[in-house]
């Protein structure tokens, strides 16, 4: 019997190829529009020049060192969000009065444009990595707290009843049922939080002209090096994509059941 062929669209490499080809097609379209002067070359550089600029920013602009600086800031802020956010979410779940006092404020924190207060942070923490980390922490904290709380609240009643029927203590109930049940929601919070941390770190570095990749983009823009600026932005996107792929792998590894 002849083996059935997997349809092309069902293969694992098909979506990746379509994505890559779409990206290339957009690049080619922009190249044509710019070369035929439909778009202004002084605002948008040629994609071919942007590609060539990648090598320049790696060799001349120390992009790898800058990536290290930004990565350190993101990871420090992100870890701080987890270390502070998860226990705070548990506290909000455990004590109703704390929840009623703080939940709305924390939700408001998630929506507040904290970056606008950067001068205050500069005064408090000086012009260095600490300021960037503290602002990123303030940005990334709320999702971890709120998603931890949500995960604990939404633990299925029947699982709690299983715990009660087995005469579990409160500590056992928390560590064996409530917390594991909340882990997927906590991970969603961490993923959101770290996204916010990346945005905040690059944004503040750009705004204050300080440190890592954000400062590099600022420098290149101020030099009016448009291919370099776009290559810098492209590099940040590339690093972010790799960062979140790694995060997804870790999540899958830690939760084999899902």
């Amino acid at each position: 019997m002849a083996s059935r062929k997997t349809p092309l669209v069902a293969t694992s490499w098909f979506p990746l190829t379509v994505g890559a080809l779409t990206f290339v097609a957009i690049g080619v379209i922009f190249e044509i529009l710019l070369r035929t002067d439909v778009l202004n070359r002084y605002i948008i550089p040629l994609p071919s020049e942007v590609l060539l600029a990648f090598e320049r920013i790696v060799v001349e602009e120390g992009v790898l060192t800058r990536t290290g600086v930004s990565a350190f800031e993101v990871l420090t802020a992100g870890l701080a969000c987890v270390i502070v956010g998860v226990p705070l979410g548990v506290l909000l779940y455990r004590f109703d009065i704390v929840r009623r006092a703080l939940e709305d404020w924390i939700a408001a924190l998630a929506a507040a444009p904290i970056v606008l207060a950067f001068p205050l942070f500069l005064v408090l923490f000086g012009r260095g990595s600490t300021t960037v980390i503290v602002i990123a922490f303030a940005y990334g904290l709320a999702p971890v707290v709120l998603k931890t709380l949500e995960g604990l609240i939404e633990t299925r009643r029947v699982l709690i009843n299983v715990g009660k029927s087995l005469n579990m203590s409160q500590t056992q109930m928390f560590w064996k049922i409530l917390f594991p049940s909340a882990i997927p929601s906590i991970f969603t919070g961490i993923r959101l939080s770290w996204t916010f941390c990346v945005i905040a770190v690059i944004g503040v570095e750009f705004l204050v002209n300080l440190g890592g990749l954000g400062q590099l983009i600022n420098d290149l823009a101020e030099r009016y090096d448009m291919p370099g600026t776009y290559a810098g932005i492209g590099f940040v996107i590339l690093v972010s994509v790799i960062f979140f792929i790694i995060l997804e792998w870790i999540e899958k590894w830690l939760q084999p059941a899902r």
């Binding site: 029947v158 009843n161 299983v162 049940s181």
Partner: peptide
């Protein structure tokens, strides 16, 4: 809850992470 009684619930009650 009494240790002599083992309960099986109407709703699906396995722990998805185990």
């Amino acid at each position: 809850p009494h240790p002599a009684v083992g309960m099986v619930f109407q709703e699906e009650s396995t722990f998805p992470w185990r």
